[in-house]
């Protein structure tokens, strides 16, 4: 199983990029599954399952921090994708908090950034960008060649090792390089660990327990099937 985690500020074009990627993956004979994690509302799972007929699911993190939700359910999510006969799991995160990153070791972390979002964005979003493997810059048709080049430079300055892909996802431009990276990415290894170090905090993940799965945590939790519950003293 290959795990591809997409993060990025809301409305930056994550779903559009994922749809174009899934379309090409299917043409190449891959079997992708899709999981959307959002806070209050999402209909992307329906859109994706209707468009492509692939296993698709959504989870509302609700009262939980969405990245926290991501951590406590990802083991089950991988199991679900395996059971549904998929070989790739695409996870689209809500991308709200900029202190943690949702990427897991041995997954492929993809951050999606809008070219129109201002030259300081790369410096503002922290680990969501710096711990990602690929930065996809979307909506490049809306800005000039000169600004594209400067924005790209700022992204690389914030995250030196990152691979930058520029894309106009609406028209499917710049998608093939992303697909290539996804195909080349490694298999997920169990047990899974969160990439990077979370910020100082008071929940199990915030204090540094990086093991994936609700069974490894206490406090306020949830699973794929069960809404919030509490484990602990």
């Amino acid at each position: 199983m290959k795990l591809i985690i997409f993060a990025g500020p809301p409305t930056c074009g994550k779903t559009t990029v994922i749809r174009q990627v899934i379309r090409r993956m299917l043409k190449k004979g891959h079997k992708p599954a899709y999981l959307k994690i959002d806070v209050l509302y999402a209909d992307e799972d329906k859109i994706i399952s209707e468009e492509f007929g692939i296993p698709a699911k959504k989870l509302y993190s609700g009262e939980l921090c969405p990245d926290h939700c991501n951590v406590v359910v990802m083991d089950e999510a991988v199991e679900w994708a395996e059971k549904s006969g998929s070989d790739f799991l695409f996870v689209e995160t809500a991308g709200l908090c900029l202190r943690c990153s949702p990427y897991i070791e041995n997954s492929l972390g993809v951050v999606v950034l809008e070219a129109t979002s201002g030259m300081n964005l790369p410096y503002k979003i922290g680990p969501m960008l710096t711990l990602a493997d690929i930065a996809v810059i979307t909506k490049i048709d809306l800005i000039s060649q000169a600004e594209r080049e400067v924005f790209r430079y700022r992204v690389i300055e914030a995250a030196k090792e990152i691979t930058v892909v520029e894309s106009n996802a609406l028209y499917g431009i710049g998608i093939d390089p992303i697909v290539k990276h996804i195909e080349r990415s490694g298999e997920i290894e169990q047990p899974m660990f969160l990439r990077g170090n979370p910020p100082v905090g008071t929940c199990t993940i915030c204090v540094g327990k990086k093991e994936i799965g609700a069974k490894n945590h206490f406090g306020v939790l949830r699973t794929m099937e069960h809404d919030l519950f509490y484990i602990g003293e």
Binding site: T116, N120, I143, S144, A146, E147, V150
Partner: peptide, 27 residues
Amino acid sequence: IALISQHTNFLSDLPVGEFLKIHAKVR
């Protein structure tokens, strides 16, 4: 290729001088 389209506008929150300086550096 540089395309200067009908709806191309600058969106970047930088002063002209700094923007040009970075672009010259990139190039």
